[in-house]
Amino acid sequence: MTILELSDVCYTYDKGTPMAHEALVNINLKIEKGLMTGIIGHTGCGKSTMLRMFNGLLKPDSGKILLDGKDIWENPKEISKVRFRVGLVMQYPEYQLFDETVRSDIAYGPRNMGLDEDEIARRVEEAASFAGVSRDMLDRSPFELSGGQKRRVAIAGIMAMKPEVLVLDEPAAGLDPKGREDIFTGLDRYRRESGASVIIVSHSMEDMARYCDRLVVMNDGEIYLEGTQREVFGDAEKLMQIGLGVPEVTKLISLLREGGMPIPQEIYTVDDAKAVLISMLGGGRK
């Protein structure tokens, strides 16, 4: 089922000036409910502009954005309600923390929703557990935390609004492998337990292959490729044409295949590769 739909969306920055720049050209996109969708593309391809469309921070010049079948700009005064339903975590969200304690910072969103204190407290605890913010962190100042911890607090701040669609712009940028993994597994848990859709922008093909159900590739303000992992990564040549690639392990597997190993299908994650190789090499036992 479709939860969020963009139909014929166009957007131009600085319209009517010599600096006019077409950021989005006729975007048609459907985001499925309950799935994790990955958006890939070069810097400046319009990803961030599109994310700002999802929750109404930017209004399209033409075209419609439908949330659950309803145009979000039907009533512009109600746009903040849309922002509670489509939660957007910006790039480097740790810079948005401001409150005295982690707890009250996470509560900022729910408080703006006008919820009562019991519900807010419940949501803060819940969001903290999803995002991997430990209990003892809650009463500390957000400014004494490490970079990775701050990032998780910021993500919890959006999760606490319980959005039906959670959108994240490079949630793992600049984190170490452990930090990346923690964030992605937290997002996956949030998606499974709340039934929400998650949309992630990332530059890491490995992360995309590991966690996303569907992939969207953008180029020059247009949708270049869209589909399941097999549909997108299967077309390695088309990805290379715009300077993107497939996960490293996929390259390795196709080299092995060229070398004569009869590996049956395309492999996109290290875990799958491991399983296939072990069984092919007659293993499975230690």
């Binding site: 922002r83 910006m90 409150d99 900022y108």
Partner: peptide
């Protein structure tokens, strides 16, 4: 933009409310 995404409202309300709404921007 980030605080708007968390439902911040900079336009409505009286002077005190508007000034308070600026805290989440000024501190970061």
């Amino acid at each position: 933009d980030a605080q708007k995404a968390r439902g911040a409202d900079f336009e409505s309300g009286g002077l005190v409310k508007k000034a308070k709404a600026l805290i989440p921007i000024l501190i970061p």
